[in-house]
């Protein structure tokens, strides 16, 4: 009986805190995205051929973990099959956060745009069942810096 109570408490905690954190994170993502919109991130390999651009590799990464509630939901989904909606928003947040961090880094070095943006997603400690179900997203690309100003 007690493990059932512990389970329900964890579930409620995971749900409450997880939902709150997700809402807050989305707010911050949207706010930063609109601010960094003027710095385009382009997934094209060939940059504009203009000799006055300096290049630098920029990257942003984030490791996120899924909360207890979402993990339980995903495990349930595993029984029935279908769309695992609890992980959709997690990965969406992670990808956008990684890209934002990359853009922030590019902004800090005065880049005009970032080219050839690539994503890399890796699940950390997968295979280890009861442990942390977490995923790393890395976004990287080449920042083009207008060197005429200097």
């Amino acid at each position: 009986m007690y493990d059932l109570i512990v389970f329900l408490v964890l579930l409620a905690l995971g749900y409450g805190v997880g939902q709150y954190a997700e809402k807050r994170h989305y707010r911050s993502i949207i706010e930063r995205e609109s601010r960094l919109n003027r710095l385009p991130a382009i997934a094209v390999r060939s940059p504009p051929v203009q000799p006055y651009y300096d290049q630098a590799l920029v990257s942003g990464n984030v490791v996120v973990s899924v909360d207890y509630f979402k993990r339980f939901l995903a495990a349930l989904r595993n029984l029935f099959g279908g769309r695992v909606i609890s992980y959709e928003s997690l990965l969406d947040r992670a990808r956008r956060e990684a890209l934002l961090r990359m853009k922030e880094q590019a902004e800090a070095i005065g880049a005009a745009m970032v080219f050839n943006v690539k994503y890399e997603t890796a699940s950390i400690s997968k295979g280890a069942r009861q442990t942390i179900g977490s995923v790393e997203v890395l976004a990287y690309g080449t920042a083009l810096i207008d060197s005429r100003g200097q």
Binding site: V63, S65, L90, S134
Partner: peptide
């Protein structure tokens, strides 16, 4: 990270 396993969110240490 074990705690984060319950609440979810970014694992800053791992990042």
């Amino acid at each position: 990270a074990g705690l984060k396993n319950i609440f979810g969110g970014e694992l800053k240490g791992y990042t």
